[in-house]
């Protein structure tokens, strides 16, 4: 028996939601043309449990509010809000989050420097850089630090959650 189906999801900031699809395993079946989004969402559901507490670092209160909305709607806990790199480093030490969203351009200490300090303290630290904006110089410097995860502004629910699944 052969069947075809198609699932189309649209998520906006005001209406975040998750699809869960239960599939029965069969011996001679294969998935053809499964959209990337579904596979990644399934991955997120499986690996979600290793990331719970997230530290947000950005000098814009808007970005904090944006990220918090999405993350809380998807079951994550925002354990701290830092406005600059120096606050980020001290909050990382005291809060020990599972993941950090780190903006790059910030007063007092920028995101690259703060990431460097955090990785020195904890080489296993998970950091997603925000707003690299395709700036090659910055991306290269971040990669030299060992950071390989970037989220370009503007971001939507899907991009934020994908970035988390990508870092695990």
């Amino acid at each position: 028996m052969v069947g075809y189906g198609r699932i189309k999801c649209k998520s906006t900031f005001s209406n975040p939601f998750f699809w869960q699809i239960g599939l029965k395993k069969c011996n001679n079946c294969y998935f053809n043309d499964v959209k990337m989004e579904l596979r990644e969402l399934k991955t997120v559901v499986e690996k979600k449990s290793t990331i719970k507490r997230i530290l947000l670092v950005d000098d814009s209160p808007i970005i904090h509010k944006l990220l918090r909305r999405t993350l809380e709607a998807h079951g994550y806990e925002v354990c701290g809000d830092a406005k600059n790199g120096r606050e980020a480093v001290s909050m990382y030490q005291s809060l020990k989050p599972d993941l950090v969203f780190m903006d790059i351009t910030m007063p007092v200490m920028d995101g690259l420097e703060a990431s460097g300090e955090i990785l020195k303290m904890d080489p296993q630290a998970r950091i997603i850089m925000l707003s690299a904006m395709g700036d090659e110089q910055i991306v290269n410097r971040a990669k030299e630090l060992g950071i390989d995860n970037f989220l370009k502004k503007p971001f939507n629910d899907y991009k934020i959650i994908s970035a988390i699944s990508g870092i695990v």
């Binding site: 814009s60 209160p61 808007i62 970005i63 509010k65 707003s131 904006m133 395709g134 700036d135 090659e136 502004k153 503007p154």
Partner: peptide, 24 residues
């Protein structure tokens, strides 16, 4: 302040993306 900050942030992202493209 949140409305003003949002407009500022939208301008920041628009300008940032465009200027990065021009720089590259």
């Amino acid at each position: 302040p949140m409305v003003l900050s949002l407009v500022a942030e939208v301008n920041n992202i628009i300008s940032g993306n465009a200027i990065t493209g021009i720089n590259n």
